[in-house]
Structure formats: structure tokens, C-alpha cells
């Protein structure tokens, strides 16, 4: 354990970066998932086709390819755009944080699309009819009836999506984000103890996974507080 002295603070800041990536991509993932589910459930054939392509593409492609494509691709595209306005610019640097965050939220969002779609379909039609009978508008039905019923159904698989999200953050180290994997790499060049350094990374991720699992269990309990005995 002596070799770890002096590295704890680096690991701590690396873990903070992992947490930041997770929080940002969680928000984006929910947005992508909801948009995808709405498109799939809409009456527009075009929207259905686009959402269908979205889920097929990102569920069938390795995560690392999407991350590399988004990182290098956006750098090239942004450089080309910047050169239109200012030919002096040689290269636009894309922050790996955002390239990686957007990449993993698009990927996991494609899984969340299916989860949300299934959950919206699982909303009891009787509840919606009751809302109609009470004179609620479409928007009111959506906010007061569909969403509260839907998130309870979506939560267990959604917890798994959050776990994939936290584990996918490790891949962003490939494009040079200074998170825990990156810290480990630096520590190894100094100490020459790769096993110890990567085990610490594993332990940090295990901690994150455990926290997420416990939080999801807590929210599930909270969600069931009004329905206990009703099933």
C-alpha cells in the first residue's frame, strides 16, 4: 500500500471527473431516451423510422468506435467549419470530456429508448381514460398520469442503464480524459506497479456501481410506497 501514498488525491480528482461525466451523460441519456421513445410511439412514420435506425445503429456498434468517431470526427468537422470563417485556424481541439460524454449518452440512450417505450406502453389504459373523463388535457395526462406511472415501470431496467453508463466512462480514457484510468497510467510510469494501480481503479468503479445500485433500490422503495398492497 506504500506505493499508493501520494496518489490518493489524484485518484480522488479522477473519481470526481468520472462523477461529472456520469451526471452529464445521465441527463443527456434521459433526453435521448425520451426523444427516441416519443418518436417510436408517435404517429409520424418518418419519426418512427429515424428512431428505429437510431436504436439499431447504436446497439449494434462497439462503444469504443462511437467514442473514437465522435472525438476525431467532430475535431475534423469543427476544424473545417472554423476554417470557413478564419482560414488561419489550423486545428480545433475538441475536449475529450464532451466528446466522450455525448458519445456514451447517445449509446446508452438507444437502450433507454426501448426501456421508455416499453414503460409508456405499460401505462394502464384505464388510468388514461380516467384522466380523459376528468377533463384533463393531453399535456396534463402526460404529466400527471403517464409520467408517474411510467417511471416506476422503467426504473429497474433504467438502473442497469445507469450501471452501463458508469462503466462506459472508463472508455473515455482512451481519448485522453484525465479520469481514474488516466491517473493509474501516470502512477504506473512512476511506480511500476500496474496491478496495484488498476485494482484501485476497479475498486473506485465498484464503489460507484454499489452506490448506484443502492440509490436505485431506494427510489424503487419510494416509488412503491403508495402501491404497496395494491398489486
Amino acid at each position: 500500500m506504500d506505493v499508493l501514498t501520494g496518489w490518493w488525491d489524484d485518484y480522488f480528482w479522477g473519481a470526481i471527473v468520472v462523477g461529472q461525466v456520469f451526471m452529464c451523460s445521465l441527463g443527456l441519456m434521459i433526453i435521448f431516451g425520451l426523444l427516441g421513445a416519443m418518436a417510436k410511439l408517435s404517429n409520424s412514420r418518418v419519426a418512427q423510422k429515424i428512431a428505429g435506425a437510431y436504436t439499431v445503429i447504436f446497439r449494434g456498434t462497439p462503444e469504443i468506435l462511437v467514442i473514437l468517431l465522435l472525438y476525431f470526427g467532430s475535431a475534423i468537422t469543427l476544424t473545417a467549419i472554423a476554417q470557413i470563417f478564419n482560414p488561419e485556424i489550423k486545428f480545433v481541439d475538441v475536449p475529450p470530456f464532451w466528446a466522450g460524454t455525448i458519445a456514451i449518452s447517445i449509446i446508452v440512450g438507444s437502450y433507454a429508448t426501448e426501456t421508455f417505450r416499453g414503460a409508456f406502453l405499460g401505462v394502464n389504459p384505464g388510468s388514461i381514460e380516467a384522466a380523459r373523463a376528468l377533463g384533463m388535457s393531453n399535456l396534463q395526462t402526460f404529466i400527471y398520469v403517464r409520467i408517474p406511472e411510467m417511471w416506476r415501470l422503467a426504473l429497474p431496467p433504467f438502473g442497469n442503464h445507469m450501471l452501463s453508463l458508469i462503466k462506459d466512462t472508463a472508455l473515455i480514457s482512451i481519448i485522453g480524459l484525465n479520469e481514474t484510468m488516466f491517473v493509474a497510467k501516470q502512477a504506473i510510469t512512476v511506480t511500476g506497479k500496474p496491478f496495484t494501480m488498476y485494482i484501485v481503479v476497479g475498486a473506485i468503479y465498484l464503489g460507484f456501481s454499489t452506490i448506484i445500485t443502492l440509490v436505485v433500490m431506494g427510489i424503487e422503495k419510494f416509488g412503491e410506497r403508495t402501491t404497496i398492497g395494491a398489486k
Partner: peptide, 20 residues
């Protein structure tokens, strides 16, 4: 343990770590 950690970390522990 194996479901709670990223596969990339597992690969690195085995490839870079074990020869320690």
C-alpha cells in the same frame, strides 16, 4: 465484482497488472 467494474479495467488488470 465482475459486473460492477468496467471490462476495460479488467483487461488492463490482466494484461498490464498480472506481470507485476
Amino acid at each position: 465484482v465482475f459486473r460492477g467494474t468496467p471490462i476495460l479495467v479488467q483487461i488492463f488488470i490482466i494484461y498490464y497488472g498480472l506481470p507485476q
